[in-house]
Design a protein around this nucleic acid. Structure first.
Length: 212
DNA sequence: GGCCAGGTGTAAA
DNA sequence: TTTACACATGGC
């Protein structure tokens, strides 16, 4: 799959069928609490590894705000071992769950009231994780900028100074691309395009045609 | 055996 | 305010 490096690259990704997801927002079980846990678990790790940990937690009945707030972090770390960085991630997950519980009470209230600044002040939540939670758990109109996106734009010859600059540029541009998905809410359009970039980037058959 | 995977925090320059 | 490094496992 050779995709021309041009302004309408996102449309090409769609035409190439990279938007064929199981979940309407691409991220598995979007709009639920487990997106928060998955967002931490998948840091610098393949999604498959993060998902194995999620399934383990689900089996043990631990995939809830309450359970993860109370579990011993040493026990938790053993359940998420396959996702790598398991000791630090166990601490991050628990402290975030405790903070959400204390500050908002439950997941629904969290989604309704949380803002970027609060999330970013939590240990283990950087810009990408923060925006992943806002878009995929809370369905906010926020575009997630990850390494794939940065590399794709770089390969296309665009240069940016910061995460925020890329995010603003993408969000502005994607409002125009919303016409490709009539009737979809903007948050979902952001979600889908980020998902397409990830899926295309992971696809070994995907190649960018260098600019002429 | 080296390199990478849906990053982040921290210390040192 | 940048840069380097630690965090850790599993698959290729």
């Amino acid at each position: 799959m050779l995709i021309e490096c041009s302004l309408d690259i996102l449309q090409r990704l769609k035409e190439a069928g990279y938007d064929n997801f199981e979940d309407p927002y691409w991220w598995p079980n979007s709009g639920t609490f487990e997106v928060i846990v998955g967002a931490i678990l998948t840091q610098n790790t393949k999604w498959q590894r993060a998902n194995e940990s999620l399934q383990m937690l689900k089996e043990k009945g631990l995939l809830s705000l309450e359970a993860l707030s109370e579990i011993d972090t040493k026990v938790l770390s053993q359940y998420i071992k396959r996702s790598g960085f398991y000791k630090t991630k166990a601490k991050y997950i628990q402290s975030l769950c405790k903070a959400i519980k204390n500050e908002f009470g439950d997941f629904e209230t969290f989604c309704a009231k949380v803002n970027r600044q609060w999330l970013l002040s939590q240990k283990g939540v950087g810009e990408e994780t923060c925006d992943a939670i806002l878009n995929y758990a809370c369905k906010r109109e926020v575009f997630v900028v990850d390494k794939y996106t940065q590399k794709l734009l770089q390969d296309c010859g665009y240069e940016f100074e910061s995460y925020e600059e890329i995010q603003n540029w993408m969000q502005k541009g994607l409002k125009g691309w919303q016409r490709l998905y009539p009737g979809y809410e903007l948050a979902r359009v952001y979600a889908i395009f980020h998902g397409m970039i990830v899926e295309a980037s992971k696809d070994k058959n995907f190649k960018l045609m260098p600019k002429a």
